[in-house]
Design a protein around this nucleic acid. Sequence first.
DNA 1: ACAGTAACCTGTTTGC
DNA 2: TGCAAACAGGTTACTG
Length: 270
Amino acid sequence: MPELPEVETTLRGITPHISGKQITDIVVRQQKLRWPVPRNLRQLLKNQIIHSIKRRGKYLLFETPAGHVIIHLGMSGSLRIVASHLDPQKHDHVDFVFNKKILRFHDPRRFGSVLWTRKDPLQHKLLQKLGPEPLSKTFHGEYLHTLATAKKVNIKNFIMNSHVVVGVGNIYASESLFLSGIHPQRAAGRVSLSRYEVLANNIQKVLSAAIELGGTSLRDFVKEDGKPGYFANRLNVYNKKGEPCPICKTPIQVRVLGQRSSFFCSHCQH
DNA sequence: ACAGTAACCTGTTTGC
DNA sequence: TGCAAACAGGTTACTG
């Protein structure tokens, strides 16, 4: 998906277009996403004003006086701001219609979701157990080291677990482990505190740099204006099987961990 | 509680 | 060229 930098890029892109604006209509063309779109979404949201847009992990939260919309982009989702007259294309599942523009949810694989809650969205079942934001002060090496105690799970899947830390998906997990010199298959409980400090720092650096460049576009992701992000140019190992390691020139290897391809340098990472 | 696996979908790429 | 299998940036639910 859209990992944290792509969701943050989307948030920054759509906010000026929809913050403080009134929703004049909702169009749901496909209700079957990862979870069903609420049947009464149109009734719930029509004429509501979006007071704020926030991000928690990879979830986007639209605050209205009546409640919150919770959006997740899944693997292939995107949100675009389009002109009112633009006809919907295939996989354009939900429109948030405003006076002059439409916010359009597009998701070929339909792993994304559009949900609704009247309560505090942070207490929603899908959000309440999320780990810390990686770019906040509560996320640091000591936190990871303590949580990893005695854990046998490999460190890559450990840092991709949203209950450990939010926002780190398959691309940025591989990239931050490479920068930290840590082998992705190493048991999480067998990484020293000092190495976790390096890793936490590198996760923050990679995510921040990716946000600066508008995220990584490999296939599906586009920004709110339909244009790609440019962090793909900065990747060291992700999607680079067989290419020379930028540090030592050893060919980059790929191995499937927890059903996800993991890219690493067997010489630089231990 | 934990680890490992299957599942939700469609589109594109890879391999025979 | 054609067809089937493998694979794709996420996450939950289920199994043992």
